[in-house]
Amino acid sequence: MTLTFEVDPAVDPALRDGILALWADVTNAGGAVGFVPPVTPEAIRPSLLKHLAAMADGGTRLLVGRDEDGRVAATAFLTFNTHRLMTHWVWVYTLMVHPRHQGKGYGLDLMAAVERTVRTAPGFEGIEAIRLGCRGGLGLEHFYAKAGYKEVGRIPDAIRVAPGDDRDDIVMLLQLR
């Protein structure tokens, strides 16, 4: 089976709760998505509400992947750059695939859906690149390289996961032109 992707789905309580559960499950399985385990959906809620507010303002778009049972299984938030000299590229945040689906190639499917969305969905005209940041120490840069992204910057020890556990902040870029 594969995931079914949708851009800009209607945000209702079921979708909101599905994203919160996904985010908590990914974090608690060791995923680098802005939190460290253990975490609950309620602890994540303020961060999701910021994403949803940015969506309501039109500055962020949501890509959701659902599994064969219709459950939220993957997400990516695409955020337009507001600096007038950088509007030709977008950020992608909160890239997640549920742990029960990892190892099936769905991560690369998600990255392909992100690229396809930016290349073809209305509202992304003129976008020439996709940028993301990832946490060092987990090999994520190698995964993103498989999806065509290039490492373009690294800030040593910029992410403090815990006292004495600092990780590099790695900047990855996918050129679309």
Rank of each mutant, 00 (worst) to 15 (best):
G58D: 02
P38Y: 01
A56T: 13
G58P: 10
L108H: 07
I155M: 09
A53L: 10
R61N: 06
G148L: 01
I159D: 05
A54W: 06
D57Q: 15
V7F: 01
F35D: 13
E141M: 03
P9I: 02
A24C: 04
V161N: 04
E42A: 09
G58R: 05
V161K: 05
A73W: 15
D157P: 03
M172P: 10
V92K: 09
P122M: 07
D165C: 02
P9T: 08
G58I: 06
A14E: 04
T117S: 00
L85S: 14
F80L: 12
A112E: 13
L63R: 08
Y93W: 12
T40C: 03
A10G: 03
V118K: 00
Y149N: 00
T94Y: 04
M96Y: 01
W89T: 07
R71P: 08
T75G: 04
V7C: 07
T94D: 14
E115T: 12
Q102I: 02
N81L: 08
A14V: 13
H101Q: 02
G148I: 00
I155Q: 12
L78S: 08
I159H: 04
E42F: 02
L62G: 08
L85D: 00
F35R: 05
G126I: 08
G107W: 00
Y93A: 14
G133Y: 11
R177T: 10
M55D: 10
I127V: 08
H83N: 13
G136T: 09
L176F: 07
G126P: 05
L138T: 14
T2W: 06
K104T: 04
M96K: 03
A54V: 05
R71T: 13
L49T: 10
A76H: 04
T87K: 08
D17K: 07
G139I: 14
L48C: 10
L62T: 03
L48Q: 03
D168G: 05
L78T: 09
K50C: 11
T4H: 02
T60M: 13
G59W: 13
D25V: 02
G31M: 03
V171S: 12
I19G: 06
E128F: 04
A147I: 08
E115H: 01
V11M: 11
P37Y: 09
A162S: 05
M55Y: 11
H83M: 15
R177F: 02
W23F: 06
P13R: 07
I19K: 02
V92Y: 12
G126T: 02
R160D: 04
G103K: 03
E42C: 12
R66M: 11
R16I: 05
V11E: 00
P122Q: 10
V171M: 11
I155R: 11
L52R: 03
D69C: 14
P99R: 06
G59K: 00
L52V: 11
T2A: 15
L174W: 05
R16A: 06
T117W: 01
D169L: 15
D69G: 09
A158E: 06
K50V: 14
N81Y: 09
